[in-house]
Nucleic acid binder design. Structure first.
Lengths: 148, 148
DNA sequence: CAATTATTATTCACATACAAAATATAACAT
DNA sequence: ATGTTATATTTTGTATGTGAATAATAATTG
């Protein structure tokens, strides 16, 4: 791969810009349609499949550090989307449960995500999207770490 | 394009996860190597080519809103990377100049970015990276807006 | 020229994320 | 049983970004 090109050194910054833009738009979109932020929507989407998981599982599940998960759950609990529950056998741990409201909204979140996903992939063939998936999955997994 | 797949609705969330991971790692990398955050490094990289630009130009140039640019410049000025200067003909505007220190570091930033870019693109062919570029550029430009 | 509108940047209140340190509890080892 | 080590989460302090509102100045228009 890769004879150096003029744009080479901007790949990383391009990722930053892409994220900033999409995150901003998605936040506005989601806030006006269902009153949630993207982070909270993502957590809801995860919890719909892992209701009652531990805070730590949520953190790993959505790719955040523990403190970020703590704060996210705090804010979501404050707005009535989830509630915290104790873990029987381990007083350190704490579980997260969807409330009625939270469960109700998680369907809408999935719908909105679908809209966004479709829009984002619109101009690309399946084969091209396969490449994009592989790229993003590799980043999310930290595949590049060994090459630094 | 695109028969719906099981992963479809996760594209957007995948982008979030990829960003979170890379941003975190890059921040740690950059902080320990040259003592800067990714955002400040990106600003420095831009300013190296647009020294003395307006705050608004910086914001547009790196894809941020005006308040974010204001804050970023404030913090960078506090750590001696840039200084603010007045605009002759327009008392509303304010210009940003690299300091010695800022200019000195911008070279190192470019080097570090190159390392990251190479690592990120490592497992992909030029043709594949072309697709990735087109994808990210489209996102950064908001091409999907019309398809929502 | 005065009134209105537009531009430029900042301030404010908030949400998000991080690393490092602190807390609390569990598990293990001596 | 007691002291050490590991685990789960929270707290603390900082950086980052947002939108809405504000301030200050410029430009336009009547």
């Amino acid at each position: 791969m890769a004879i150096a090109r003029a744009v080479d050194r901007r790949l990383f910054l391009l990722l930053e810009r892409a994220h900033t833009r999409v995150f901003r738009d998605a936040n506005n979109h989601l806030k006006s349609s269902i009153g949630l932020t993207v982070s909270q929507g993502g957590a809801l989407f995860f919890l719909n499949r892992h209701d009652g998981c531990r805070i730590g599982d949520l953190a790993v599940g959505i790719g955040l550090g523990a403190p970020a998960a703590t704060g996210l759950v705090d804010r979501m609990a404050k707005s009535g989307l989830v509630r915290r529950g104790a873990e029987k056998d381990d007083a350190r741990a704490s579980r997260v449960y969807l409330t009625e409201k939270g469960r109700g909204l998680s369907g809408a979140v999935a719908d909105e995500l679908k809209i966004f996903n479709d829009a984002i992939a619109h101009d690309f063939t399946d084969a091209e999207m396969e490449t994009v998936y592989r790229f993003l999955t590799g980043l999310a997994r930290g595949d590049y770490e060994g090459k630094l």
